[in-house]
């Protein structure tokens, strides 16, 4: 119940932020709009207002279903290091692609993630880690004609 109220308050805060900061700052509106409903910010204002209203409703009438939240779906503190580690790997992939291409980081990521979850069947692991990114890259390069960044595997294309 308390959690639901807090969540409602957070929704209200986000809605208010959208109404009073994000929309006025983030939407450019021309000065000669004939009707308010035609203005570029009209629709976002309506949406943000409904969102805020939902937050208010969550605060004043917290749902009983939230009590059923199981351990399975809670972010317990012991899971934070695993979660942060995984997200770090994901975003690291994004940042290294301009330098290394997509294939090598994808291979490293597969090996890293499999190892992370206790997978130690190395022949299978290497087969999957090398095979999947290469097959995908080949598909996009030669079937779909989409230039996937290859990095050190540039020779495939040449």
């Amino acid at each position: 119940m308390k959690e639901s109220r807090l969540l409602g308050a957070a929704v209200v805060a986000i809605g208010t932020l959208a109404l009073f900061v994000l929309i006025p700052v983030g939407i450019v509106s021309p000065s000669d709009v004939p009707a308010l409903a035609l203005a570029p910010e009209f629709w976002p204002l309506v949406i943000a207002s409904i969102f805020t209203l939902m937050g208010i409703l969550m605060t004043i009438a917290p749902g009983s279903t939230d009590r059923k939240t199981t351990e399975e779906l809670r972010l317990v503190p012991t899971r934070l290091p695993r979660l942060s580690g995984f997200l770090a790997i994901l975003f690291a992939f994004y940042f290294v692609v301009p330098y290394l291409g997509m294939i090598l980081p994808a291979m490293a990521m597969i090996i890293g993630l499999c190892w992370f979850t206790g997978e130690r069947r190395w022949p299978l692991l290497i087969l999957v880690a090398v095979g999947i990114p290469l097959i995908l890259a080949m598909f996009f390069l030669f079937v779909a004609n989409i230039p996937i960044p290859l990095g050190i595997f540039e020779f495939i294309y040449s």
Partner: peptide, 15 residues
Amino acid sequence: PNTILYPIVLVFCLF
């Protein structure tokens, strides 16, 4: 096993 499946799915998502 999901330990093999999910990294593969993830690479599909990224590509």
